[in-house]
């Protein structure tokens, strides 16, 4: 097969072909805005964050904490049984020192996005950012604590926790 094929299909273009308009092209920007509703489980989770508390739910059948809080257990496929309050401390499960943002744009000062295992959850991690101190000194297993926004500025969002600092 590989020997038989003389020319493999496809015509590569260079960046110059576009910049110098050697080929025709057209552009389109979607004019769409989305509005998503948090629902029952996350609704409770965000209400907790607004009060400065991290809350999860618990499935009495598999004895698991679900975090972020959810309305049903995907393992047992049943509704959850109760809300549980967790600590606002945890340990770093994994992290990155990131020089890229959402659309792969480059960041001058790196962020330290991490998965943080929340104390009291049985090892369940949430996604957040670590700040304060040298990014290159962050380690897996490091203890961290939430730094909350002032009460009046919280709006029931994941960003009500400003960041996590090493302790």
């Amino acid at each position: 097969m590989n020997e038989k094929v003389k020319v493999w299909p496809g015509t590569p273009l260079s960046e110059k072909d576009i910049i110098e308009k050697r080929v025709l092209f057209t552009e389109w920007e979607p004019n769409l805005k989305y509005a998503w509703d948090a629902g029952v489980g996350y609704g409770g989770y965000f209400a907790g964050l607004k009060e400065g508390r991290i809350v999860g739910t618990e499935c009495a059948k598999c004895r698991r904490v679900l975090l972020p809080a959810r309305a049903f257990c995907e393992w047992c496929f049943r509704t959850v049984d109760r809300w549980v309050q967790l600590n606002d401390t945890g340990i770093v499960n994994t992290f990155s020192v990131a020089y890229t943002g959402t659309a792969a744009e480059r960041l001058k000062d790196p962020l330290v996005p991490a998965l943080i295992e929340i104390d009291g959850s049985g090892g369940v991690a949430i996604m957040h950012l670590i700040r304060g101190g040298d990014p290159w000194k962050v380690k897996i297993g490091m203890k961290v604590k939430a730094v909350w926004k002032p009460k009046g500025k919280r709006e029931g969002s994941i960003n009500d926790i400003e960041y996590w600092k090493p302790v």
Binding site: S96, A98, P113, N159
Partner: peptide
């Protein structure tokens, strides 16, 4: 609700896993 508002980049997921 819990991921995109953090300014999440696709590469972070792979970085976390690789680490």
């Amino acid at each position: 609700f819990t991921e995109s508002p953090l300014g999440t980049s696709l590469l972070w997921f792979f970085a976390w896993e690789m680490n």
